[in-house]
Simulated assay, not measured.
Amino acid sequence: MVMTSDAHVRDLRYFLAVAEELHFTRAAERLYVSQPALSKQIRALERQLGTVLFRRDRRGVRLTEAGSALLPHARRVLDAWTEGAAAVAAVRAARLGTLVVGMSTSPGRGGLLPAIRSRFTTAHPHVAVRLRQVGWDDPTAGLADGAADLAFVWLPLPGAHRYAWTVVAEEPRLAALPATHPLAARAELDFADLADEPFLALPPSAGVLRDFWLATAERAGRAPRVGAEISGTEETYEALVAGLGVCLVAAGNAPLITLGGVVTRPVRGLSPSRYVLAWRREDGERALVRDYARAAREVVAAGARAGSADSWTASLRIATVEP
């Protein structure tokens, strides 16, 4: 039995090139080395293994029986090495990469975003987290077209089967009204009180999300009256002040539009809204996406355990959803 030291990956790569080309000059050109250097390396490998791998004669270069036996194993080793190197490169790229987080409305909610960022960057200190504001015409906040890796969005999502998400807040839908509106004098409203009012609507491209904020499901088949279309918080505030209509708003977003001249009121008969961190299903095992989502779940769970009455977690349902 011949004892050998371990062959280097380079030796196997040289052996494979000669075995496939069956020509030392062509193999040397393929490897970007000189032909004498390649021949020297092959001889060294043969000495190391204690056997001849190639026959060289006037007819050319041929594999010996030992060379033929080594060939499939050399291929497997080199394939495995290539896959391993790619995996290491992917990890390195992830460590030094950028994670894009989309949003159509700032999460706010008691420091949610800084808390998630802090947990995430502890695990990935070299990764840049870039926030990307997206208009309300894209209810996926950049997920659908690939512009964002994850996104803070409202349910329901168009094409929900394409996404998974974790719920970060569940909040009642309030009615936002001009302060001069007759219904503003009431402390609480029934949705029936609002059903005939003109509503501010998201752009048609928002699809099922537009329907949700128009409360289409609660209208018993009656179409809503659309007073104006809105595509951002400032437009919403201006349209309310101008008396173009009323709208529904999540409780956590009420401070964004009650800046003077606008009030919000609780509404009976409406299901709550759900604010989620979502990602594309196929990205669920990407290290950065997975770890950012984990950080969000940990922050949400920590807030729920704290149980602060004025916290954004006060009415939270914690879940990861794979619809």
Rank of each mutant, 00 (worst) to 15 (best):
A301M: 05
R305F: 09
A295G: 07
A314D: 02
V262P: 03
E298V: 01
G252H: 06
R294M: 04
C247Y: 03
R305P: 12
A278T: 01
A301V: 00
E282P: 04
L270T: 01
A314Q: 06
S271W: 02
R280D: 00
L288Y: 09
V289K: 10
E238Y: 03
R268N: 14
D283A: 07
E238V: 07
S308A: 15
R294K: 02
L277H: 07
V262R: 05
I257D: 01
V262E: 01
S311Q: 13
V267G: 07
G307C: 10
A314F: 03
L270F: 09
G232C: 10
G252C: 05
R268D: 14
E285V: 11
V262G: 01
R305Y: 14
T233M: 12
D310A: 12
W312G: 15
W312S: 12
G284K: 12
L240Q: 00
V289W: 06
C247Q: 13
R305S: 15
P266C: 07
A295C: 07
R286C: 08
S308R: 15
T233D: 13
A242R: 02
R297F: 08
W279C: 12
P272A: 11
P266G: 00
G307D: 04
G260E: 13
E298T: 15
Y237L: 09
G269M: 14
A242Y: 10
A287F: 12
V300H: 06
A309K: 11
G307N: 03
D291P: 11
G232T: 02
V262Q: 02
A301L: 15
